[in-house]
Amino acid sequence: MEFKTFVFYFLAVIMVVAALRVITVRNPVHAALFLVLTFFNAGGIWLLLQAEFLAITLVMVYVGAVMVLFLFVVMMLDINLDRIREGFWSYLPVGALVGVLMLIEMVMVLGGRYFGLDAMPAPPAAQAGFSNTRELGRVLYTDYVYPFELASLVLLVAMVAAVALTLRKRRGVKYIDPAEQVAVRREGRVELVKMAAEKE
């Protein structure tokens, strides 16, 4: 077995086990941490595919930022597991149906007919000095610049909408404005008064 194959199976086994643990583990914080492990191993597998930019971005965005905030929220929530599990058996048929449908779709699309080695032979090895990042950037900002900008616009709108939905300005509350506090200058607070010394 080639060393690369060994690395692939090593990462893949950990990833699959971690992904299973995400949905089977009882503690939500553990589940989130297993999801982090899954992302990390997915990044490793992408590295094997020579997609280093995507792999590192996956780790940076999902592990470094998204999951941190996710954990932040999950840790603060008081989750009652028994309440969540109450309707398990009644929801199971619907859930299983959706799951099976998704599985069939994925098998049809990702099966050997389209993604087998005959249909999609391994790409030629990149020559030395090939920069994955540069190539991706070139494609994104030239060939696909409009779809790319459109996607970023949609994200921006979503972001503004999320902020606008949660923004709430209450009047008449004693709320600290750090900007105002930082902007304080001595002249605004202290007044030096010059006066003659008092003599008896």
Binding site: F53, I56, M60, G64, V68, M75, N132
Partner: peptide, 19 residues
């Protein structure tokens, strides 16, 4: 090649230890 990016990714994972 992507050294700077790798550094950003690794340093962004530092927070997990603390959390």
């Amino acid at each position: 090649n992507a050294g700077l990016l790798l550094l950003l990714a690794i340093t962004s994972m530092e927070v997990y230890g603390v959390i």
